[in-house]
Design a protein around this nucleic acid. Structure first.
Lengths: 208, 208
DNA sequence: CGACTTATTGACACAGCGCCAATAACGGTC
DNA sequence: GACCGTTATTGGCGCTGTGTCAATAAGTCG
């Protein structure tokens, strides 16, 4: 049992601190179980707080979930910072390597993040899409292809990279949860497939 | 309002027929809205039936959802049947083309299928994984690579194709819902990336 | 030690779920 | 056509979870 079962006197906290505390519990719960099976009562109990307080700070259940998704989707910027000034190949290789490092360290966190349910909620979708857009920027930056700006071409390229990032998520699932691929496998697979996408598939589509 | 609002006399039907009728409504509802926001009462009302009858036929809500997911995940076998006896390239191209055709025709159906929530439920995951396994078989068959049977190698190859099918889903989402890619774009992208995966990435991983 | 601010709570009304005994269609029998 | 047995179908009960509001009490300041 991980919750604060202590029914001590009620303590008064700074709103920000309390909010953060509850959010941390919610993040863990929603991360390891589905939206429907996690109840606000659970989260409140584990936070050592009355259920109504959760509603007070976050509104309804959906908004609390939204807040959790927002936090989950934060991508560390370090992955694509200070890249060496060499070829796109090497830069992407470094980028992928750093990313694998981050993911391996925050295994639980990452698995929870890619497991978040959309719920058919447009707001949730928007948040996830924004995260993908940021990741896409990082890749284009690393590949030094930020100069593609024909209207349609840029859109298509970005769409293809977003699609590729879905493969990335699935592949990391195969690695971390199913154990069917190794970290080295991912490195090879992701690096090569991104390059293939950028240098072969995209030109072919552009001139289609 | 799409439901049978007619409060006519209660009619007695064959169990199979009634079950199918309810399941059809459930499929549509769960397909267009999230699990949490669809209530058994809704489904029952639209089916012109008492809520308790839904439980009678399907057990609890989770089992009904499971049944819907099972139906959604059925993949038409026609996609990979009677392929010409030529190169892997051409066979895969035909395969992808047929698949795009099926998806375009059953647009709604397909979007609903790839939008199904896992809910963190192992049973749901199992069903989705099985569907991916079948799709993987089809691809390997079309690519004439069913002869890879070193233990680890076969596993890795299959895992990579499963990951690729996640890209396929995301790309079809970009095509059908966001309009950022065209059908022709998908054809080029999917065909090339699968081939690249099979003929370049896989050998590289195998000898890693 | 009061008095004031406000973080925190208990309780209420309501919606959705699972279950069970009770009900009433429908088919067969006389 | 009236009776009857089968069983598809229903209404209602108890429970859990949610959102809201007035009421409570933990700190803080004079």
């Amino acid at each position: 049992m991980g919750g604060k079962a202590q029914a001590t006197r009620r303590r008064r906290m700074e709103p920000d601190a309390r909010r953060a505390e509850i959010l941390a519990v919610a993040r863990r719960r929603f991360g390891s179980a589905g939206y429907a099976s996690v109840s606000i009562s659970d989260i409140a109990a584990e936070s050592g707080v009355a259920r109504a307080l959760v509603n007070h700070y976050f509104g309804d259940k959906r908004q609390l979930y939204l807040e959790v998704v927002r936090q989950m989707m934060v991508i560390p910027a370090s992955v694509s910072q200070r890249l060496p000034r060499t070829t796109a190949e090497e830069r992407l290789a470094v980028c992928v390597d750093r990313w694998l490092e981050v993911v391996e360290r925050n295994r639980e966190m990452w698995l929870a993040a890619i497991g978040m349910e959309s719920l058919g909620d447009p707001e949730v979708d928007r948040i996830m899409l924004e995260a993908d857009e940021i990741a896409t920027d990082r890749i284009l930056e690393a590949a030094m292809m930020t100069d593609v700006d024909e209207d349609a071409g840029r859109e298509k390229l970005r769409a293809m990279i977003r699609a590729h990032s879905a493969m990335l998520k699935s592949a990391s699932h195969e690695w971390l949860e199913r154990g069917t691929l190794t970290r080295d496998d991912l490195h090879v697979m992701l690096t090569r497939s991104v390059l293939h996408l950028l240098h072969t598939v995209f030109p072919a589509v552009r001139n289609g």
